[in-house]
Design a protein around this nucleic acid. Sequence first.
DNA 1: TACTTAATAT
DNA 2: GATATTAAGT
Length: 325
Amino acid sequence: MGEEVKMTEYEGVDGDDGGGGYEERVLEWEVGLPNADDLTPLSQPLIPPELASAFSISPEPYRTLLDVNRASKSTLSNLRGGNSQAFLSNNLKSFNDDRGRDPMVVEGEDETDRDGSGCDSRKLRKIDSTEEADSALRTENSMDDPSARALKRPRLVWTPQLHKRFVDVVSHLGIKNAVPKTIMQLMNVEGLTRENVASHLQKYRLYLKRMQGLSSDGPSSSDQLFASTPVPQSLHESGGNGHAHGNGHLPVPIPMPYPPPMIPMPVLGMTNGHGHSHMGMTMGNTGGTSGYHGFESHPYNMLQQRNWSGNGSAVSFPRVVPSDN
DNA sequence: TACTTAATAT
DNA sequence: GATATTAAGT
């Protein structure tokens, strides 16, 4: 309620030419962002008066909400003007959070080490506030080959958000009707291909099988993502004819607990950035067991990069070693 | 054509 | 070794 949905769409220039013909749209969306209550009001002074005077920091005059709003607007327009097209072009796109976050740039080529010194600023990015602080960064390889561009698609990273959406769709479809194409359509994620979905579906099925075969108990703590996205009960029947099951909350179509039919592009890693980013997702759930709540609020942005340690979360399914099968 | 499964690549 | 992509079979 009361959320404003601003979006600017424009047609991508780089994307595809050969086969698809679908335009790549970049939507600047603000849906689902934390509402005002969740944020520290900018109108409040960040530095206590005592501190300020102690360090001779000139006290900024109080700002009214209006001032803040105005500033935000100008910032936004700046962003729009300057960066808006960076998404799918060859430019690197880096989001800087308001606080000075390091706009790490990914390496382009197959360099093994970017520089001699092993100790650099690239060490760790601390994820404070909530783990939603992801920066999306996407780099196009320095492929100059026009022929190759259409073929090489960046690696898709299944972020928790993306996965959740996936699970939702699958569950609402019923596992039987959940086929790649349908899932893809329902997810309605720009840039997501049927192959992507099929692949993930394959993995997901394996996961389900494991879960089922093992016991009715919760998954191992290995992979939070799948663990935190509980398998809906609807994943059983829902056979041929579409009769809504049990809870009867979904007529037949697709109940999407999500914002309308449009979601920005998923996160794509780089083709040449082969690397092992085993990221230890620091499940910073404040409460702990309550699943995740802070998630929905952000886009599927996350960089799959090799050297980031400590952030980014790719999907993984709880690893359960098959004892006998 | 689309789905599933297996192999391959990163 | 895990995850995603690509190929092969139905």
